[in-house]
Design a protein around this nucleic acid. Structure first.
Lengths: 215, 215
DNA sequence: TCTAAAATTTAGACAAATCTAAAAATATGT
DNA sequence: ACATATTTTTAGATTTGTCTAAATTTTAGA
């Protein structure tokens, strides 16, 4: 498996999570920041290796082998992100690019020992679940803050968008994973929400609220 | 800098340590397990980038920029090896291949934080010195066990050969870095040495003794 | 010193992953 | 249903790092 192949599988896995059904060539090209013609070539190669189901003009889906490979890369990515934050003093907005490199290191023992060293974490610094050695993800029920009703309460357990700019916005407003959030009021005209976190009252836009994953 | 370029610089640096003067195309090809014609191509590229001094048919040497880059890769390699042994329970004979991958991860902050996390180690698990952030190596005087006289004593501080097979030989015979070694007798006919380590007496062949670095 | 051997470079080819431009298939709107 | 727009694929080129085989330069032996 080359790094490029691993990146395609990961992209296809992520696309499969949000949308349902087969994944289009253009969607993969967009996700991978590349051209559709390049995607066609790679998709053929991965289909030849038994990692994708593919018929010309019909889009792709992961085979069970392909899904396992994708989950293995995601496991490595999330464990390395956890390592960077927990052990090397990185902030949660600084770890993605480095984990993109580290996720391609080939050594099963390395990743299993890293897992042990980190005490088998269940989620990464962004609240994303970490697949176990067998590629199993612990199921959990979650909603978006934007979908909660007035007067309800929740715990912030993750972020949908983990871009640096969003994460820094949360840092600046002292919103962190584990925080208890209470919906005080929802504004109809722009779908923004007034919330209480600890003893602070905040006004969050719909964009912000719809990127916060809560229990 | 590509991984391949980094590997060439590292190989050229290592060749420069043992032999003196300019380094030949064939020597690099041997070290890199590749063909001389491939070396010529890469050497031209690195010379164009100002990392090597090169004249056709005259061999190469590192420029000061090239030496810095090589030392930076070696620093990363040795810090990762230290991490694997100190934190992830790897044995010293298992770390080389993984460190060959990890040494190419691009992030200055990553390696500086790793250095701090490991408490700024001076040597790696094989006793090789770790260059500091500025590429400086702490000078140290060292000899080979095979060059010591009868009745002298020394401390084992490193290995010249760090192949798995040699390292496992040392493990099997309970010879470790830091051990005090006393030369009891030298055999003229095969240059083997009788030594005492702790309260154990061992008979080491010349090959073994000439790969043990001592104070 | 002259010739043969060894070392090195050049020339041309290849595989991987990408691109552009053009062709083919599918989807859409009236 | 048919013309047009969109999506996808194909064909051919490019880059990086490698290779083989041939040519060139240097080294070394008689």
């Amino acid at each position: 498996m080359t790094q490029s192949e691993e990146n395609y599988l990961k992209a296809i896995y992520h696309l499969g999570k949000s949308k349902t059904g087969v994944i289009s060539t253009n969607a993969i090209a967009e996700e991978m920041q590349t051209k559709p013609s390049s995607v066609t070539d790679m998709v053929k190669k991965l289909a030849d290796k038994g990692l994708l189901n593919y018929k010309r003009y019909q889009g792709v889906s992961l085979t069970s082998d392909g899904k396992q490979k994708a989950l293995s890369v995601i496991r490595k990515h999330r464990l390395w992100e956890t390592f960077l934050v927990e052990k090397l003093n990185f902030n949660w907005d600084e770890v993605h690019e480095i984990a993109e490199q580290l996720e391609h290191i080939q050594s099963e023992k390395l990743i299993d020992e890293l897992d042990r060293f980190l005490a088998f974490p269940k989620v990464d610094p962004h609240g994303d679940p970490i697949p176990d050695k067998n590629g199993e993800l612990e199921p959990r029920q979650s909603k978006l803050l934007s979908n909660l009703d007035t007067d309800s309460s929740c715990i912030c357990i993750g972020v949908k968008d983990s871009s640096s700019s969003f994460l820094r916005y949360l840092d600046k407003n002292q919103i962190a994973l584990g925080d208890k959030i209470r919906i005080l009021e929802k504004e109809d005209f722009d779908n923004s929400v007034h919330v209480q976190i600890g003893n602070r009252k905040l006004h969050l836009s719909h964009v912000i609220a719809s990127n916060l994953i809560v229990t």
